[in-house]
Amino acid sequence: MKFVSRAQWGARASRYKLTRIPDTRGVKVHYEGSHVPASLANPDAHNLCAGRVRAIQAMHIADDDEDYSDIAYSAMVCPHGYVYEGRGAHYQTGANGSAPLNRAHYAVCAMVGSSGLTEPTPAQLHGIRDAIEWLCADGAAGAEVKGHKDGHPTACPGGPLYAWVQRGAPRPGATPDPGPAPTPGPKFEPFPGAAWFKSAPRSPIVTAMGRRLVAEGCGRYRSGPGPQWTDADRQSYAAYQRKQGHTGTGADGWPGPKTWAALKVPKV
């Protein structure tokens, strides 16, 4: 993590003592909500980022209506991926909209806005993840990662950043979790062909077929079924064909591909 402490970015002292908190349910992601120059993302513009954090702290401290003690955010992240310590870990944020919301989540603000620089850079997304993981490790933040608008009526953190949050806030280039593997479906015996049955085969497929015919209420066996194809198998299969609505030569007891598929004989 490219961490910039309060002392390193030149933070002013808090107006009054910040409220300490033992832990949170997680972190909420914010954006500045005003114009951020697109040029701030240029590689040679990083020297402007600390000054931007100082300006935001000064603006918050001067806001008599909100009566902020300090910069409202737990941390800020610039387009170059640096994490600027705001109120920091174990201190209640002032950015989430109300005292209960501020106690429930830390607040990490990305230097993107509603115009100009609106898309977070890959380095910035890495930085936001760094800030979240820092607050989890040092601030006992829970696993929730949400947007400011989750729980408070606001457009923050803007469309692009909120879409990233809704995807689970992944690091750029990370392989998405595919989730649990699908449960394999049942496997059935393919149709062996009518000629195969007419050759009076001896096979476990015949036994499996007979068991399915008995399960369908179509068994005409005195014993078995067994692996040897017999007239009892043909009579049982004819009963199944009639159950499927077939008549005449369609119910002659010789398996066909459609009735075989419907019977779903398990793979042996």
Rank of each mutant, 00 (worst) to 15 (best):
Y162I: 04
R171K: 04
T154R: 01
P201Y: 12
R167Q: 15
G179F: 12
T247R: 09
F188Y: 15
Y162W: 04
P172D: 12
S223V: 11
T207W: 01
Q166L: 15
F188V: 02
Q235Y: 02
T230G: 08
F188I: 00
T247S: 14
P201W: 08
T175N: 07
V206H: 02
Y162C: 04
A181M: 13
D252H: 14
R212E: 00
A169V: 00
R222S: 15
G173P: 14
R167L: 05
R234G: 11
V165P: 05
L213S: 04
S223D: 00
R222Q: 12
P172I: 08
G185H: 05
R202I: 12
G217D: 05
R234W: 02
D252C: 08
R171S: 07
Q244C: 15
A215Q: 06
L161S: 05
A251L: 04
S236C: 08
M209E: 04
P176I: 01
P160R: 09
F197K: 07
P186M: 08
I205H: 01
T175M: 04
P180R: 14
F191W: 05
A215Y: 04
W229L: 11
K198M: 12
P201V: 00
W164N: 01
P186R: 15
Q244E: 10
C218E: 01
G173A: 06
A215L: 02
F197R: 03
A251D: 10
P201T: 10
P204N: 11
G217W: 01
G168M: 00
D252N: 15
K187I: 01
G173H: 03
P186C: 12
A200H: 14
G250H: 12
P192M: 10
A155G: 15
R171N: 06
P170M: 11
Q166A: 01
Q244S: 11
D177K: 13
T249W: 01
P225L: 01
A174Y: 08
Q244R: 15
P176T: 00
W164K: 08
S223T: 13
A251V: 12
G159M: 07
M209T: 10
Y240T: 06
A163I: 02
T183D: 09
F188S: 02
R242K: 13
V165E: 00
P227H: 01
Y162R: 14
D177F: 13
P190N: 14
P204E: 02
S236K: 06
G185L: 10
C218F: 02
T249Y: 05
P178F: 06
K187V: 15
A169F: 05
G179Y: 13
K243T: 06
G250L: 05
P182R: 12
C218T: 01
S199P: 08
K243A: 13
D231C: 03
Q244K: 15
K187L: 10
A169M: 00
S223E: 13
